[in-house]
């Protein structure tokens, strides 16, 4: 986005900080006017809670636990989503036969599958993993199919006339040609997976009375249901946002690194 030349080099900085700062200050002032025994969160309290939680290491390990689940579930989704996507993208008949099933599962939100995952797998990590994998599967699959089905025919023909054997064309032509689409799918899938793990941990916490799930979602739920520490909840929300942002940035950087020909 091209912005008009600023009057001074500080103008964009001031613009960027202005409204967030006003809102945070207003929030703090509002909190101060409340009675002393209030549980309402306030910026100062949030900062204090952050240092407390970060200092004890609990925040870090909970975040790590959630991230670990997301990565593992995501890895499953990559194997199945990209694998099936390559198959469906390459073969009309496979696509025609699987499309009806895929399309009927697609509108089923990941969280709707959670009760069944709990029935089948209990309230521990396997249930959380399956939700993440389910959530990440669809963006990966759909973008892979899209990418493969739009590979330029001429490129495949070119490889054939150079004597490249058929199995090898998949790896040397179709996969790189579909990579931009697949990577877009991966980025979307990872964002969805991160949301799904929070939801799964929250729900497991909410519905199994503490449960054994752990993770940052569970941590939030404990703050809500037991210690009633709203500052802690806001800290968790901020961490969730920052992780989401970092995941997005990481994938964009990876795309640039993997596909230098597009930049």
């Amino acid at each position: 986005m091209i912005r008009p030349a600023p009057e001074s080099r500080w103008t964009p900085v001031i613009n960027a900080v202005l409204l967030p700062a006003v809102l945070v200050i207003a929030w703090q002032i509002w909190a101060v006017t409340l009675p002393a025994d209030t549980r309402a969160p306030a910026p100062v309290g949030v900062v204090a809670a952050f240092f407390h939680l970060a200092g004890s290491g609990g925040l870090f390990s909970a975040t790590l636990q959630s991230l670990g689940r997301v990565l593992l579930g995501f890895a499953f989704a990559v194997v199945f989503g990209v694998g099936l996507g390559l198959l469906m993208g390459s073969s009309r008949s496979v696509k025609d036969n699987l499309d009806p099933i895929i399309e009927s599962f697609r509108p089923i939100a990941p969280m709707a599958v959670l009760p069944i995952a709990i029935l089948l797998l209990g309230t521990g990590t396997p249930a959380a993993l399956s939700i993440v994998a389910y959530a990440a599967f669809f963006p990966l699959l759909i973008n892979t199919v899209h990418g493969v089905s739009r590979v330029d025919r001429k490129l495949v023909q070119a490889a054939m006339t150079m004597g490249v054997p058929r199995p090898r064309i998949l790896a040397t032509v179709i996969l790189p040609a579909a990579l931009p689409s697949i990577m877009l799918g991966a980025r979307v899938a990872m964002g969805v997976a991160w949301t799904a793990i929070i939801a799964a941990e929250l729900a497991v916490g909410a519905k199994s009375g503490g449960g054994t799930s752990g993770g940052i979602g569970q941590m939030m739920f404990v703050f809500y249901a037991y210690s009633i520490d709203l500052n802690g909840i806001v800290v968790c929300m901020i961490v969730i946002g920052v992780v989401a942002l970092l995941i997005d940035r990481f994938f964009r950087a990876t795309e640039r690194w993997l596909m230098p020909w597009r930049y």
């Binding site: 330029d152 001429k154 070119a158 790189p176 040609a177 990579l179 597009r262």
Partner: peptide, 11 residues
């Protein structure tokens, strides 16, 4: 074969 639009591999 040399194709009309060259069919170079963009990657």
């Amino acid at each position: 074969v040399m194709f009309q639009d060259y069919a170079l591999f963009p990657w």
